[in-house]
Design a protein around this nucleic acid. Structure first.
Length: 634
RNA sequence: GCCGGCGUAGCUCAAUGGUAGAGCACCUGUUUUGUAAACAGGCGGUUGCGGGUUCGAAUCCCAUCGCCGGCUCCA
């Protein structure tokens, strides 16, 4: 444990000490340090309130002042049981004790009257806790399993000194100002209207410019890399998703199907209530899941294809993924090995029924557009194609100056049944991902259980302003959907072969990416992305005519410019431009008008002096064309 | 979905059971301005929605919708 973790871990023990002083009946679970602080989970009838937090924190300060030494005590399993019973903490601690392997030492840590099953380590005296603060109360399931009891978790943070604590809290406050939900409102980038629906993004004109620019940017890269553009509809028949495996496997995270009127009439005509419709779908999908589970891994889908029988309801689903549609395009005609790789790209909008409590601004939504593509290639081509996809992700991130990300290779969880396909193919796909990741030149972690249901993936993960991680770009290797859809190409040997699929989305979703991007730039977008690139402000409205000439010239070059026609003093107009985070403000007075000039003020660099209107236009055009990042120094 | 907190004007907030208010934004007028806020006036609210308690509810209670922080989930 690092010294800081040790400090925070000790703070969590002191938190538990204080809680037991105030609420002796509280049952303890666990209290570890975290990246940013610590927490402790309690089971208690009384619901903690904000006022309780103040009281608890005050008692914690007392405990710190009592300068209690922390003692480590190693005990036998029998002694441990006795301690737990003596303290009436059987409810969770017995289970925690049982988790400790037989060959490991069992230890307790004691400070004052408090004693907790704990591997350690701890600070030597509670007086080391000079700077801590309780932050929030949250529900948390015991062992992170929603089938278990929900405990009350108290979060806090601690630092070696009061200054460091104050700096951390101030930095957190600063971070909130960059929150994309706040900036989205301030800069009028997007709205979410409760009448339209939770998690459904309405892109306003300003936000749409950013999204469109990003789309144009990557579109150019795709043309260079030999992708073909396709378009597909937002829905597909239930049958399609039964074949792909989405329907039985992930039905709970999809919008309810749109049932064909005829099917619906048949069911309702029999006197069924709406609930009966859902019950029937449940039964059908359960049955399909069983069938598909027992059939995964076979090399031909024809015999395995699940056909609807008379009991089935026919209808459509909002697409949760684009792959089935793209697969159907690939399958629509025969392919020679000479055609491969086939790369089909689409900004495809998908819909997923995320739990209401998980929705979050742009970063977790119910309808989003993936910058998606599916590559169909030979097994020999997989490595090169995956590397090409990773290259694309790196181009995106470096163009935007996003360097603070981590790479995760998501592998299957060997104990889970949520995956489709046979083991041999999974092994090949996982190996392909691993090898490709090694060529990245950045560290990556392998994480079991993070794979897609059809294959392993390489994800680019970025933190938002409050430290939550979000998966953005992703590259996924898939040996399984080609089997499920019985895809083939004709090889050099004139025999049919199974292609391998690669799913990839460098941005991930436009919504989530823009959310993270807004926070990355704090709303100060580079000129090429800024909804408004230039604001013209005049000293006096007598100069507005000249300003309008300059404005027309800027617009003529395709630049996004406006003229501030308010009857305000210059300072007020500049302030407004600054608050609107416009990259360039052109100040126009008599001198400028007479010389066909503009006085340039850069948001990043301040006053840059006077230049000819023509020169500014050329300079900004070049800056936009090169997709330059805002430079602090001229 | 679960636990907890919160919903007052476009935005930020005030009013704690007794006439819903301020600043900014917006509109109008005056001002004609040199690098982050000129002045004056005006517009703007069934206090998220629906019930209830009360002589009287933004305020108390119930329900519902939404938002925020966690948990769970995340193709």
């Amino acid at each position: 444990m690092t010294p800081l973790e040790e400090l925070r871990h000790s703070a969590s023990h002191v938190l538990a000490t204080a809680v037991l002083r105030l609420f002796p009946e509280a049952k303890l679970d666990i209290g570890p340090p975290t990246d940013t602080g610590f927490y402790y989970d309690f089971d208690l009838e009384h619901k903690f309130t904000a006022e309780d937090l103040v009281r608890i924190e005050a008692v914690m300060k007392q405990v710190a002042d009592e300068n209690q030494p922390f003692y480590r005590k190693e005990v036998s399993r029998e002694e441990a049981l006795a301690i737990i019973h003596a303290r009436g903490q059987e409810r969770y601690k017995l289970g925690r004790l049982a988790d400790i392997p037989a060959d490991e030492k069992i230890s307790f840590y004691q400070n004052g009257e408090f004693m907790d099953l704990c591997a350690g380590t701890h600070v030597r005296y509670s007086s080391k806790l000079k700077a801590f603060k309780l932050l929030s109360i949250a529900g948390a399931y015991h062992r992170g399993d929603e089938k278990n009891a929900q405990l009350q978790r108290i979060y806090g943070t601690a630092f070696p000194t009061k200054d460091e604590l104050a700096a951390y809290l101030a930095q957190q406050e600063q971070a909130k100002l960059r929150d994309h939900r706040k900036l989205g409102k301030d800069l009028k980038l997007f709205v979410i209207d409760e009448d339209v629906g939770q998690g459904l993004i309405l892109w306003t004109p300003n936000g749409s410019i950013i999204r469109q620019e990003l789309q144009d940017f990557i579109g150019g890269e795709l043309r260079k890399q030999g992708y073909s553009q396709v378009f597909t509809p937002h829905i597909g028949k239930l049958e399609l998703y039964k074949t792909s495996g989405h329907f039985p496997y992930y039905k709970e995270s999809q919008f309810s199907p749109v049932i064909e009127n005829e099917s619906l009439a048949r069911v309702l005509g029999e006197g069924c209530a709406c609930a009966e419709v859902y019950a029937r779908l449940e039964a059908v999908s359960g049955q399909l899941a069983t069938q598909l589970n027992t059939r995964t891994g076979r090399e031909t889908i024809t015999a395995d294809r699940v056909r609807p029988d008379d009991q089935l309801l026919n209808g459509f689903m909002l697409k949760p993924m684009n792959c089935p549609h793209h697969i159907k395009i690939f399958a629509s005609q025969p392919h020679s090995y000479r055609d491969l790789p086939v790369r089909l790209a689409e900004f495809g909008t998908v819909y997923r029924w995320e739990q209401s409590g998980e929705l979050n601004g742009l970063t977790r939504v119910r309808g989003f557009t993936q910058d998606d593509a599916h590559l169909f290639c030979t097994e020999e081509q997989v490595g090169a194609e995956v590397r090409g996809c990773l290259e694309l992700v790196k181009i995106v991130l470096s163009t935007l100056g996003m360097a603070d990300y981590r790479v995760r290779v998501g592998l299957r969880d060997p104990d889970s049944t949520k995956y489709t396909g046979d083991t041999a193919n999974w092994d090949k796909a996982e190996q392909a991902c691993r090898e490709a990741a090694q060529t990245l030149g950045v560290p990556f972690t392998e994480e079991p259980g993070e794979a897609a249901f059809y294959g392993p993936k390489i994800d680019f993960v970025i933190k938002d302003v409050i430290g939550r991680e979000w998966q953005l770009g992703t590259v996924q290797v898939d040996y399984n959907l080609p089997v499920r859809f019985d895809l083939s190409y004709i090889g050099a040997d004139n025999q049919p072969h199974r292609p391998v699929m690669i799913h990839r989305a460098p941005f991930g979703s436009m919504e989530r990416f823009c959310g993270v991007l807004i926070e990355h730039f704090g709303g100060d977008f580079p000129a090429w992305l800024a909804p408004e690139q230039v604001r013209l402000v005049t000293i006096s409205d007598r100069l507005d005519d000249y300003a309008r000439t300059v404005l027309a010239q800027l617009k003529g070059e395709g630049l996004r410019a406006t003229l501030d026609e308010h009857s305000d003093k210059l300072g007020a107009k500049i302030r407004r431009a600054e608050l609107d985070k416009v990259p360039y403000t052109l100040v126009i007075g008599q001198k400028e008008a007479e010389a066909a000039c503009v006085s340039v003020r850069s948001r990043a660099r301040g006053d840059e002096g006077v230049m000819s209107a023509d020169a500014f236009r050329a300079k900004l055009k070049a800056e936009v064309a090169s997709r330059a990042l805002p430079a602090k120094q001229a």
